[in-house]
């Protein structure tokens, strides 16, 4: 794939309205190696303000690595990533800024097991955003209300079901009032009956205009909510398009193969 072709792919599937919005995340030729394994082979992608972007692809295709590079849980080695006008480099000041403006939800929830649900949510607002405890707790209760589990505030994560834990994890990220939310396969570790309760919360978020990048295997969610869908394979972006284009009329053979296997 030539450099020109990939540049055009980055903007593919964008409506005029979407194209006119601000660029919130810009990835330009991002490359990343783990030892001698190349996980990202020059990814170009732009996420617009209030856009919901779903990243699809087989396992090991670099989806997770890409979004983990966006909040610098992994450092990319070549290319550039600009989030909200700030370039990601080794600059400590920038990393701190990005981390508090980009929320992330993990596959394994990663709640802090030794803290109550309320403490899990208020920890970062208090110590990173320097809010007063009372204020942080008030906000935390609002968020728990919003994800539908205010009565669990004093429990420990281990006492909750998987779906509840993931909703707490979303509330924990939202408590930092992020501009962007990253979701790394948020429903993959859940029992089937709990998936919808998490997806509902995510759909609400999307409706309220949060900028979101989701790595997920939930095709229904992708079709319903996504503004654009990105398909990745072996560290490359293969195809970008609207859900309609993607599910009805994909251009690339690899995308067709993937869809035929998964649908």
């Amino acid at each position: 794939m030539s450099q020109d072709a990939s540049m055009s792919i980055a903007d593919a599937g964008m409506s005029a309205e979407l194209a006119a919005r601000d660029d919130v995340i810009v990835c330009d030729g991002v490359k990343k190696w783990f030892g001698d394994f190349q996980a990202l082979r020059g990814v170009d992608v732009t996420v617009k303000d209030r856009e919901v972007m779903v990243v699809l692809g087989p396992s090991g295709s670099g989806k997770s690595t890409l979004i983990r590079c966006i909040n610098r849980l992994e450092a990319h080695q070549e290319g550039r990533i600009i989030v909200d006008g700030i370039e990601l480099t080794n600059d400590l000041r920038n990393i701190d800024k990005i981390r508090s403006e980009v929320g992330m939800v993990f596959q394994q929830f990663n709640l802090f097991p030794h803290l109550t649900v309320l403490d899990n949510i208020t920890l970062a607002p208090i110590w990173v955003r320097k809010k007063a405890r009372s204020e942080a707790e008030k906000r935390a209760m609002e968020l728990l209300e919003r994800v539908g589990i205010p009565e669990q505030a004093e429990k420990y994560p281990g006492q909750l079901s998987g779906g509840q834990q993931q909703r707490v994890a979303i509330a924990r990220s939202l408590a930092m009032e992020p501009k962007i939310m990253l979701f790394d396969e948020p429903t993959s570790a859940l029992d089937p009956e709990m998936i919808s309760e998490v997806l509902d919360v995510m759909k609400d978020l999307a409706r309220e205009g949060m900028t979101m990048v989701c790595v997920t295997h939930e095709m229904g969610f992708a079709r319903e909510v996504a503004d654009r869908i990105v398909f990745m394979e072996s560290g490359d972006i293969v195809e970008v398009g609207t859900p309609e284009h993607f599910f009805t009329n994909p251009t690339e053979d690899r995308t067709k193969l993937f869809l035929s296997q998964i649908l």
Partner: peptide
């Protein structure tokens, strides 16, 4: 301690000391 705990703390913006 699992790696996820470190990642979640980093993603929330906690410093290394915190």
């Amino acid at each position: 301690i699992r790696r996820g705990q470190f990642e979640a703390s980093d993603a929330l913006g906690l410093t290394t000391v915190q």
